[in-house]
């Protein structure tokens, strides 16, 4: 590698305002407005191969599980049609198993995109990138908010697109078994929107955890603990408290929000939305406050 001598003439027009004798401390250009920081965070987001791979995996998994679930649902309905008792149970549920097919891969989408949320923030600290980021945006909160926005919007759009794609792929499979799925029905649209919002919320929680813990493994383990271990543990621990508490876990807020009718002994849709909102707002605010306070 050859070293380049610094040639003042190559410093371009920019150097003109900064020659010897210039009064110090006078910036000659724009600073970090929120839109610029957002642009920067988006550049950072799309220039990591690992991020793109995780996004690709999400699409594959959601579409794959949609197709698999369409096949499984078809098999089930075929079996049910030969068994009058099962057919009755099937009909009692509204007969609409197919509407849940496109969102059957959500559990995996939330795991991948939640982990991505953790990684995008924790890697800032593990790689030292945070020093560059927060030297450029010393107020810190705009960078955090911009990253949060990028993560949440991406998670929402990607989940929505994947679910829609999963729906399209499962249509011919369901058709094979004589099942109807209307992707434009209000319930289908509701399922798609609520699940996409939910995954965006999980990604936000992941990012907050990544920011609080500043460690990739620790952040992802906490996320898995909250979304996969806690629901099972709460079910196994005897006692009324845990039965009640289980309803308030973030992972259990989706069913009440997408239910056609309110199921007894579950949260109302609006309650579930508030609970999920709290699960996002509290860690995010905590992460932002501590990010502002702690040393980088």
């Amino acid at each position: 590698m050859s070293s380049t001598t610094l040639d003042p003439s190559r410093r371009g027009t920019h150097a003109a305002g900064h020659t010897a004798g210039t009064l110090p401390g006078t910036s000659t250009g724009p600073g970090p407005s929120f839109l610029r920081v957002l642009n920067s965070e988006f550049i950072k987001f799309r220039t990591l191969l690992s991020t793109l791979i995780l996004l690709g995996c999400t699409v594959l998994v959601v579409v794959g599980f949609g197709a698999l679930s369409a096949w499984g649902t078809g098999q089930f309905s075929e079996a049910a049609s030969r068994d009058p008792q099962a057919a009755a149970a099937f009909a009692a549920q509204g007969g609409d198993l197919a509407v849940g097919v496109p969102t059957s891969g959500i559990a995996f989408a939330q795991l991948i995109l939640g982990s991505l949320g953790v990684l995008l923030m924790s890697s800032e600290f593990t790689t030292g990138m945070a020093r560059s980021t927060f030297a450029a945006v010393p107020k810190r909160i705009p960078a955090f908010a911009a990253k949060l926005l990028v993560v949440m919007v991406t998670a929402f759009v990607l989940t929505a697109a994947s679910v829609f794609l999963a729906g399209l792929v499962s249509l011919p499979i369901l058709d094979n078994y004589g099942l109807k799925l209307d992707l434009s029905s209000s319930q289908s649209v509701k399922m798609l929107l609520v699940n996409s919002l939910y995954v965006a919320a999980v990604a936000a929680i992941g990012m907050a955890l990544g920011s609080l813990i500043r460690n990739s493994a620790g952040g992802i383990m906490s996320l898995v603990g909250l979304f996969f271990v806690a629901p099972i543990a709460f079910q196994l621990i005897p006692g009324d408290f845990f039965v009640q508490a289980r309803k308030y876990l973030p992972g259990n807020t989706v069913d009440p929000m997408t239910a056609v009718q309110h199921v007894p002994d579950t949260l109302e849709a609006w309650q579930a939305a508030l609970v999920l909102g709290a699960w996002v707002v509290i860690p995010v605010v905590l992460a932002a406050v501590l990010l502002k306070k702690r040393d980088v």
Partner: peptide, 25 residues
């Protein structure tokens, strides 16, 4: 401040581009 204050999986150009974007450089 630290030669490795950079995400190791990003290219040098993209790193500088992201830094520059914050100030419309």
């Amino acid at each position: 401040l630290d030669a490795k204050a950079v995400h190791t999986s990003r290219s040098a150009y993209n790193h500088l581009l992201a830094m520059a974007a914050t100030h419309s450089i």
